[in-house]
């Protein structure tokens, strides 16, 4: 981690993810066609698009949950389509993923949920280290008291925060947020956004945030990409895009 932050300080805007010419279809249904995108270090990139426009497909291709049909995806300098299972798992340890519905394991306590990503990396951890990491992650989201509760006993906002803690527990370099504020009331959503920014500052991570929540995008985005008609339709800062003359772009910010 330390040498990486040194790197960051010296090298400026390095690409952490670069996607070139991505094509993905399900049978007849083409979802992504010639999609290009870069994410740089320390950047919060917001990906906006309509429901069913292929945002989740894109993010799943990047993390290796789906195989793209064509195109090149490089994450931290590695071409993920050419990685074996072992290398893929190692790369995934560098990436945090906050799923849409939190995706906490129902049958496990909060503690077990947080320990789950650590179990693959036992060689690096002993019992105390695991405990410390779990507590640290929970304290970061302000939920240390929920350690032995089941996810079903938590409110939606708390679940989202625990899920964020789980995504952060391995101190990843990149975090993917899939719709971090859907299903939450505006106040809780704002809490989550602030928490995301907090984390951002604390761990110097790059983030890819999928959302159609304009408020969220305004607060968090350094840069916004609009996914429209299967490709990267527009790119720019929040002010650039929200004042764009293109009616199709404008439609996103109504």
């Amino acid at each position: 981690m330390d040498d990486l932050s040194n790197n960051r300080a010296t090298s400026g805007r390095t690409e952490v993810i670069s996607i070139k010419g991505l094509y993905k279809s399900f049978g007849e249904n083409v979802v992504l066609d010639d999609f290009n995108m870069n994410i740089y270090e320390d950047e919060n990139l917001v990906l906006m698009g309509k429901s069913g426009s292929g945002k989740s497909v894109l993010i799943k291709c990047v993390i290796g949950l789906m195989q793209p049909d064509k195109g090149k995806i490089e994450v931290l300098g590695k071409d993920i389509t050419k990685l074996g299972q072992q290398e893929m798992d190692e790369l995934r340890a560098e990436i945090g993923f906050l799923f849409q519905g939190s995706a906490l394991y129902d049958s496990m306590t909060v503690r077990e949920n947080l320990e789950f990503p650590l179990r693959r990396h036992r060689n690096k951890m002993n019992g105390n280290r695991t405990k410390d990491l779990v507590m640290e992650a929970l304290e970061n989201v302000g939920l240390a008291h929920t350690l032995d509760l089941m996810p079903a006993e938590l409110s939606g906002g708390m679940q989202r925060r625990v899920a964020l803690a789980r995504a952060l527990i391995l101190k990843p370099k990149i975090i993917f947020y899939d719709e971090p504020t859907t299903g939450l009331d505006p106040i809780t959503a704002k809490e989550i956004i602030l928490l995301m920014l907090d984390v951002q500052k604390k761990y110097n991570t790059s983030s890819l945030i999928i959302t159609h929540d304009v408020d969220c995008a305004r607060v968090i985005a350094n840069r916004i990409i609009l996914l429209y008609e299967k490709t990267n339709y527009a790119e720019g800062t929040f002010t650039e895009l929200s004042t764009s003359p293109d009616p199709k772009v404008k439609a996103f910010f109504k």
């Binding site: 799943k60 993390i63 949950l65 299972q85 798992d89 995934r92 340890a93 990436i95 993923f97 799923f99 849409q100 519905g101 939190s102 995706a103 906490l104 394991y105 129902d106 049958s107 789950f116 990503p117 179990r119 693959r120 990396h121």
Partner: peptide, 21 residues
Amino acid sequence: AELGSMKVTEQIDAMEVSGTN
């Protein structure tokens, strides 16, 4: 029901992302 709901709520994906088969 358990695996079905895990699939629907992306818990299965979450496991895969966490490096667990």
